[in-house]
């Protein structure tokens, strides 16, 4: 199958078997090392990528379904923001929000999706988004704290009453 899509800002035309997942295409054929396979069951979020502006599980998407779409992996997140480091990456690094690192690039993608919006967010919103990403090392706290601080510094944080 012919498939054409944009990966981290560059257009690609490829021939891909229909049964190949987007995750396998990205990791095994396109050297996007950030796309980790943690479960291939659509649960852990380690393979998260942005398709257009939405974070999706790339293990639950066929590569051919990316045809005509804009795919951004963690490698491309900083580039699309025009910097060497994205705000999310800098926030996570600043708080030491990882140990083994296997979940980290998926977390970056999921949080990048949240940051790219413009509506004010509560801590609960961040928890909801992050609850789709499994981390076995950190206990999530430093990740949450890092992102909430980032939101607060950009005036995007909204207090939730009663919680």
């Amino acid at each position: 199958m012919q498939v054409g899509f944009e990966l981290n800002g560059e257009h690609l035309d490829l021939d891909v078997e229909a049964s190949v997942s987007l995750a396998d295409l990205l990791h095994s054929r396109l050297a996007a090392a950030s796309v980790h396979l943690g479960c291939e069951q659509g649960v852990c979020g380690a393979c998260a990528v942005l398709v257009d502006e939405e974070a999706v599980r790339s293990c639950l998407m066929l590569a051919v379904q990316a045809d005509g779409r804009r795919v951004t992996t963690a490698e491309g997140v900083a580039r699309r923001r025009g910097g060497r480091w994205s705000e999310v990456e800098a926030a996570l690094v600043g708080k030491g929000a990882f140990q083994c690192g296997f979940c980290t690039s998926g977390v970056v993608v999921a949080l990048e999706e949240l940051l790219a919006g413009d509506e004010p967010l509560t801590r609960e919103d961040v928890v909801e988004q992050l609850s789709g990403q499994i981390c076995r090392c950190t206990g999530y706290v430093p990740i949450l704290d890092a992102f909430v601080s980032l939101l607060a510094s950009t005036g995007r944080m909204r207090e939730e009453g009663g919680r």
Partner: peptide
Amino acid sequence: IGHPAIRHR
């Protein structure tokens, strides 16, 4: 239903 990433697809 699931998480945002599931609902996107």
